[in-house]
Design a protein around this nucleic acid. Structure first.
Lengths: 272, 272
DNA sequence: ACAAAAGTGTTCTATGTACACCCATGT
DNA sequence: ACATGGGTGTACATAGAACACTTTTGT
């Protein structure tokens, strides 16, 4: 693909060099990310950023930024945004959906390619970016058929403030910037559908190389927002992951837990 | 969303009116469509267009075009392209994926939002557009772990040429323009996954208001590229569609077919 | 002793798959 | 008579959900 100009005819090369790509009006393109994590209470959370400038100044929004034209793919732009916002690389990123109504942003026509990232507990160090005045984790809450967000008490920030310094904050869908409430709703829906047949949950473990079945179960429970049967979850785990070689039994136990020690497992990924 | 400027502060309104959206370089955005149909042999086909201009002049490509900025959403752009290419409106369109590598198009950085359309047999009247020199249906063929395309003998075109006038044409993935071979491969993969739990197959019926189980089965078979058991297909059909009210028994039979008359059914859609 | 989680077993039902078989029609 | 599809029934394996029960640890 990169060598197209080297292999094409002289006539075509002339056409390409004379081509004026600015003759048509273009939309702006952003890569945005819905970043999911588990907090200390084993609740599903998303990372939101308070907007420092217009439009929607002061509102909470999902992280994102403009595509650097001719320099990066949208996938790379999403990875770059994730790194700038969380300091994390090599996190599984999946494309969610692309939004492109002309009136999404009052400044101009913006096409947003949205990705979903699953970030492991504890590894997340939120960096409040230069253009963003604040960043916070919000628990996802479902109340009277609407979506709400409550900021987690334990916060990670630049100054490492204690829990007392960060008052709990409650957000409704309508308080979010742009169409980000719709985007988050879709991301949650997709995550819930995927969790039954994709190994997404492993990406949210504190340590995928050493975890118990109960820890994995808690992730499934908070994503599905309902409790699961222990026996049935184990059976499905053994069938789907241990028997297929995607998970290995470490033959070690998690001890000093206040209850019966649990077997530890290691996620090996999807390699053959 | 449209009334944002009416409800915001004077200060913000000044900001928005002074905002210069052209200060950053933007990519081009297109809406492209993978259009699936069944041909007379009950084989799965896609509609391809032969490119009349550079780049990839003379190569076959999926239909698509640039987003009209500030005028339409990408969904609307895809619907517009579908109408311009096939003359069909109100066809189910689902967003497939967004491609955005800088080197996809040798002219400039193009972000393509790709949609999948399922077009019913017979209703398709291909219009060779002004910028496209030719349009054809291609059967999808799987040979030695690669994807190939063979043009259907029976063709619909402006001049209504007979079958003899259109020689059969064989295409390999590498003969397609841009990264369209990858796009088509992904579209087929998604269609195959969806067919088991989404009512996509009904959209490919000659007449969704009057069809037999065998006709529906043939669509499933050509999408999955393998034959299915009659008894099992019926059972699944009764369970999934008749029992849930998404399909109605017409209490009529298809006759004069050279075999036992078959019961006719009507697809009612997904309304509650 | 008790809480908390670890871990095992049984039962019922729904689904997917394989396969054997008979039925009705036009040629 | 026969090809072609229409249509029914049985049998088996597996997956999911419900639930009862025992085990092992730290406090």
């Amino acid at each position: 693909m990169k060598d197209y100009k080297k292999t094409c005819s002289k006539e075509e090369l002339e056409f390409l060099n004379a081509y004026d790509s600015e003759k048509y009006k273009k939309p702006s393109v952003t890569a945005d990310i819905v970043i999911f994590t588990m907090d200390e209470d084993d609740d599903l959370c998303i990372l939101l950023i308070r907007r420092g400038g217009f439009p929607y100044k002061g509102c909470w929004a999902i992280p994102g930024g403009f595509l650097e034209v001719d320099k990066e793919s949208i996938d790379e732009a999403a990875r770059r945004e994730l790194f700038e916002e969380t300091g994390l690389r090599d996190i599984p990123l999946t494309q969610l959906y692309t939004f492109g109504s002309p009136d999404r942003d009052p400044r101009m026509h913006v096409v947003s390619v949205v990705y979903t990232a699953l970030v492991p507990k504890d590894q997340l160090k939120i960096r409040a970016g230069d253009d963003a005045s604040d960043a916070k984790l919000f628990k996802i809450r479902y109340e009277n058929n609407g979506l709400y967000f409550r900021s987690t008490s334990v916060m990670i920030s630049k100054e490492d403030l204690g829990p007392e310094d960060v008052p709990s904050e409650e957000l409704a869908s309508k308080d979010l910037a742009f169409d980000h409430a719709d985007i988050i709703q879709l991301a949650i829906k997709r995550l819930r559908n995927r969790i039954d047949y994709e190994p997404d949950a492993f990406a949210l473990l504190r340590d995928p190389t050493s975890f118990t079945i109960f820890e994995l179960k808690k992730i499934h429970e908070s994503i599905k927002n309902r409790s699961l049967d222990t026996a049935n979850f184990r059976k499905a785990f053994f069938r789907s992951y241990l028997a297929t070689g995607r998970v290995r039994d470490r033959n070690e136990k998690r001890e000093d837990t206040g209850h019966k020690p649990a077997e530890l497992y290691e996620f090996l990924g999807n390699q053959s």
